[in-house]
Amino acid sequence: MFRAGSKKRRGKRVKQKESHQDILLSQSQQNVGKRPGGDRKQTKNKNILAKAVKTIFMLLEIKNLHASAGDKEILKGLYLSVKEGEIHAIMGPNGSGKSTLSAVLSGNPAFTVTQGTVHFKGMDLLSMTPEDRSREGLFLSFQYPVEIPGVSMVNFMRTAINEHRKYRKQEAMNASDFLKLMREKKALVELDNTLAGRSVNEGFSGGEKKRNEIFQMAMLDPVLSILDETDSGLDIDALRIVAQGVNKIHTPQKSCIVITHYQRLLNYIVPDRVHVLFEGRIVKSGDFQLAKDLEKQGYDWVKQELKD
């Protein structure tokens, strides 16, 4: 059932891609037509345009990424491309750099990028502040959501939403619209009503914390979500609620990177691509079958393959 959903998504995406490309090409031809340029110039423009189209649909493009925490190099030349609408799963043994990747992408100052580039919607992601990354539509669901005593959920979310709106030069959302939105999104992850008045994550159970992450994701409506081990520490019911929440938010324009140890979550959120991250590099990529193989056989055979 979920596979079918994903196929459907893919179908839509392709269609949309074409239409986008058409518009862009026709625009460029118009522009070129106005200019008294030679044939050579026209082909050059077309090439540039083709490149631009490619980067636009490549939502995230990571090239040769090296990153370290202190003196220790963790990511050692990572390549990853995520197109609009795709769901990618990243798996890998402990200590392979999965969480470092999510931290670097969201701009955590505890990690230093020493080499490589990351483009997000064609922009240089690494030069952006964490807040601008969020405002441009990047979202990280934390593996360990931080407790912030004294800051209420409602105040936190309202400030976040309004900072996003300010960035897009929109007016601040009024209180009743905001509460309506909050009620609507809370229902997605079955969070209870006392949430608004409580401090951010303070005293939340493990499951509530993760559901709260997905709630925030629904509120902020990102184009690229990174779920960093969102399934860890969840019981079966909570896992289902979280995964269903993610699926409800997902649209053909949005992409998702799911970092996980287990196939279990991927039964709900079905990935288009599965990658194995090992010693700071993506060493193997495949489709959903790869996740099933890993679940069955562990990582040893991947390591063995690498040695050979």
Binding site: S106, G107, N108, P109, A110, T129, P130, E131, R133, S134, R135, F139, L140, F142, P145, V146, E147, I148, P149, G150, V151, N155, F156, T159, A160, E163, H164, Y167, S199, Q216, L220
Partner: peptide, 23 residues
């Protein structure tokens, strides 16, 4: 950690600091 968490939700550093001080 709290500061980064808040910034990763789109709050400016100044606003996040203000909220944490307030708390």
């Amino acid at each position: 950690n709290a500061l980064f968490y808040m910034r990763s939700r789109g709050l400016s550093e100044q606003e996040a600091r203000a909220m944490l001080k307030f708390a």
